[in-house]
């Protein structure tokens, strides 16, 4: 049950892109075509699934206060958590290098289409963000961390897939010249984020307030009518020819 809850929470409620804007750079840059978006999304799922549990182990056995007790009782007082940024990013960079080598070997076409963006996964905020959120939310066990990494990856994948599909269609629409490209993508993403906020009450039955980033708990308080019109707008965008 815990696993299912965490899965849906990370995919929909705490979606990397729509709730925290992580990984926006590659999200905006690689979402022009659905096929490349799928490739990058898959790479992100994979890297997140590997790095979050790895960093969980690092956090548990090296970084946290008292984590070094397995070395001996005299190490119990060390708190190395200030090193977490540098260790996390080193793990991530290594893993990305590995993925790059594997993809180049087994799928040259994917490698060519991802081009420059594969190394950029290393600096994709969603990857480091996954590890940092894992640390700050005190994820309790290894398999929960694995689940968290995988489901955040799925959430990111869904987001980039959706925006790529919309952008392919919006090419045929009459967008005001100054908004073309980046501007309209921002605004669509904003509308999609508003749509995703309607998932906020999914796991609490809508009764409790979801804790938003600002800690104000405003997530659940929006007028439902606003949400439905905005989601309807997004879905008309999707169906638009």
């Amino acid at each position: 049950m815990e696993h299912i809850e965490l899965f849906f929470k990370s995919v929909f409620v705490d979606n990397m892109v729509f709730a925290y804007f992580l990984g926006m750079c590659s999200y905006l840059a690689v979402s022009k075509k659905v096929s490349t978006a799928v490739g990058l999304g898959a790479a992100v799922i994979f890297v997140l699934t590997v790095t979050v549990p790895l960093n969980w182990l690092l956090d548990q056995y090296i970084l946290q206060e008292g984590a070094l007790t397995w070395l001996g009782p005299e190490y119990a007082e060390y708190d190395l958590s200030f090193l977490s940024f540098i260790l996390f990013i080193a793990t991530i960079a290594t893993m990305v290098q590995l993925v790059e080598i594997v993809v180049e070997k087994f799928s040259p076409s994917l490698y060519n289409s991802l081009g420059i963006f594969l190394p950029l996964i290393a600096v994709n905020c969603a990857i480091l963000g996954g590890s940092l959120f894992m640390q700050s939310r005190d994820i309790a066990s290894f398999d929960l961390a694995l689940n968290y990494g995988f489901s955040s990856g799925i959430g990111w994948f869904l987001a980039i897939l959706a925006i790529a599909a919309i952008r392919e269609k919006i090419r045929y629409s009459n967008v005001p010249p100054a908004l073309r490209g980046l501007g309209i993508t921002f605004i669509i993403t904003g509308l999609m984020a508003i749509g995703f906020m309607s998932f906020g009450g999914m796991l609490t039955g809508g009764g409790e307030e979801t804790s938003s980033l600002e800690g104000e708990g405003i997530g659940a308080q929006i007028d439902p009518t606003i949400e439905t019109t905005e989601t309807a707008e997004v879905s008309t965008l999707i169906t638009q020819e």
């Binding site: 804007f21 921002f186 605004i187 993403t189 904003g190 509308l191 984020a193 980033l213 104000e216 405003i218």
Partner: peptide, 8 residues
């Protein structure tokens, strides 16, 4: 104040 408005 909500996150989506930053994008907009």
């Amino acid at each position: 104040v909500l996150p989506p408005m930053a994008l907009i």
